[in-house]
Design a protein around this nucleic acid. Structure first.
Lengths: 338, 338
DNA sequence: TCACAAGATGTGAGCGGTTGCAATACAAAA
DNA sequence: TTTTGTATTGCAACCGCTCACATCTTGTGA
């Protein structure tokens, strides 16, 4: 078995409490004793048992982050951001993938009820608003990322969906495009709604007509984007600019456009949202979301909550428009069949 | 405070051990008592305190996975695979990003010495062989992923680097390419060495000459690939086929080739290794590495080790060659400047 | 009717720490 | 010298749960 406080104490001829004080750097211990104990600790290769300590301190120094099962390019960034801040404070990050056949909130509820973690960070759409509310009953610090918190007591870290959508749309307009369409995400989805709102605001700002029939609903997927474009074309709607609610949709849309003989950006300028890795390679103009910073900010909130500090209700990070070939006249964009 | 065994016991008029027996589903309890206790547990919303249980059981039901700081497309897959198997056994996954300014092994050593996790899974290159050996001293179950274990007692989960490299190279040869070059990863890197070996073996099998001057060293990065190609071209080496040791290098190589006026696949057919998301989009032929399965297998090993089972020394997963535009005559590959 | 086995439950000692309080020692102040 | 204070250290309870063992019921066969 591992060496314990008792063992060290016996070796030094002091009690376990004295040794405990030494490792906790308490001022209540004589310097000479301290030195001796430290020496023995090193010799015996003693390390405090984290579990035992947690039991008395009632702290696990662990944060849980819940993620949807689908592995995308954005989650690793969020986790990395979390770990960055967490580790700096001696905390660790436990990842919990939900979704698929797994009963969504049961896993998290168990984690919380067992007091296995000190706080839970939930990332967009992993848990529904109702589930978040239900879990909040267990009075465990929680933080929502990229999801508007359903309760005032739970802080959320958001990013400027509308601002991003406005800059994307305005960019298309600045390029001289006047006949825009928008491929939006599912109705009721916070991100989707906000981005759609931004699209409209930008049109209004430019004095262009807002027309709901030029907004096409779809899922946040490549296929959804492709289908939405096909629908638009079938309906005979004319457009020279397209703002998709995320990059996946934008890519699907571009593929569909090309299949239909349209060229990007000549015939249709395309802009997406998220700035996934792919966007860079394909040359897709998009709105960059600061994922890593999202993770960092969420962790800061979580740590503050754990310490009992009052935190601001939420934080909104800004986004940045990035222009690439898909909306730059004269540049060539080619997708490859694979 | 949360409700404890004692509380439930008092409420039912039984002792804490009886309640403990009930929640552990021991057969030593009368059915009537059991029913009553279960009812009260539900009413009082009791959940066992995981920390306390860990203290006696000396088990945390947590696995640590150490990853390099660089967020690539492959790690999320590995984590997801781990979580998949782990959660099925009631385990959780703690992620630890190492690298950057962080003292590499100190963090992990602390984790281990504090007995905060039951096992550690280390993914390629996160920890050096020496560090793995040093950590193994603490007699904590460990598993290496995509890294040949430096000690016989530590199992490793590998994938068939050489087989993949052979199939990639053979494919180029089958396409009629006779003047191949190889962009290899750093000398001493296990993956790099194996893939290079595979390249050679395939050449030999085809009766083609093996020539070390046609192997160019570089890092596993886009830049490394680009530089290696430039070097080859500057040296006036002729080639119509290129096997890069990973996709990143292959992509960098293709960019460089195109900058130098060569077309892919007409002038040079290119094959990579890994099958990152991008490969699909760009149309890069490559060798698919089963990352998720790597995570699953590693977790199975880890769980077996925790249970004290003897495990096979290592497991080698097979790879699969995927042909795409970059090595298919007649297909067009275009990279976009961004 | 009594001894004894088996079944059901309680007791108490840990697991490895933390921490309030008491105890001791030694020095300075009265 | 006695009192008071301060710096050190030990004691023991506690965190919430597990488990070996003791105890107490009951039921059964002689």
């Amino acid at each position: 078995m591992a060496v314990t406080l008792e063992d060290v104490g016996r070796q030094c001829g002091v009690s376990r409490s004295t040794v405990s004080r030494v490792i906790n750097d308490s001022p209540l211990v004589n310097q000479r004793t301290k030195d001796m104990v430290l020496k023995v600790i090193k010799e015996m290769r003693y390390s405090p048992n984290f579990i035992a300590r947690s039991l008395t301190k009632n702290r696990t120094e662990t944060l849980a982050v819940t993620l949807p099962d689908i592995v995308g390019g954005v989650f690793p960034e969020i986790i990395a951001g979390m770990d960055e801040v967490a580790s700096r404070h001696g905390y660790h990050v436990l990842v919990v993938f939900l979704g698929g056949a797994r009963p969504h909130s049961a896993t998290v509820e168990k984690l919380i009820r067992n007091r296995r973690v000190d706080a839970v960070v939930t990332v967009a759409s992993t848990l529904s608003d109702q589930q978040v509310v239900a879990l909040s009953e267990w009075n465990m610090p929680m933080v929502c990322v990229a999801q508007k918190s359903p309760l005032a007591i739970i802080p959320s870290v958001l990013f400027d969906n509308m601002g991003g959508a406005i800059s994307a749309t305005s960019h298309l307009i600045a390029q001289g495009r006047r006949h825009l369409i928008h491929l939006r995400g599912a109705q009721g989805n916070y991100d989707a709604d906000e981005r759609c709102r931004g699209f409209r605001v930008a049109l209004e700002q430019a004095g262009l007509p807002v027309d709901a029939s030029r907004e096409f609903a779809g899922e946040f997927s490549r296929d959804g984007g492709a289908r939405a474009v096909s629908r638009a074309l079938e309906q005979g709607i004319e457009f020279d600019g397209l703002f998709a609610a995320n990059d996946e949709m934008a890519i699907g849309a571009m593929e569909a456009l090309i299949r239909h003989g349209k060229s990007v950006p000549q015939d249709v300028a395309v802009v997406g949202f998220d700035d996934v890795d792919l966007a860079h390679f394909i040359g897709l103009s998009t709105v960059k979301v600061p994922h890593r910073e999202l993770g960092r900010a969420a962790t800061r909130f979580a740590l503050d909550l754990i310490e009992g500090k009052t935190v601001s209700e939420s934080e909104v990070l800004s986004t940045e428009f990035i222009q690439r070939a898909s909306s730059t006249p004269g540049r060539q964009l080619n997708l490859l069949q694979s």
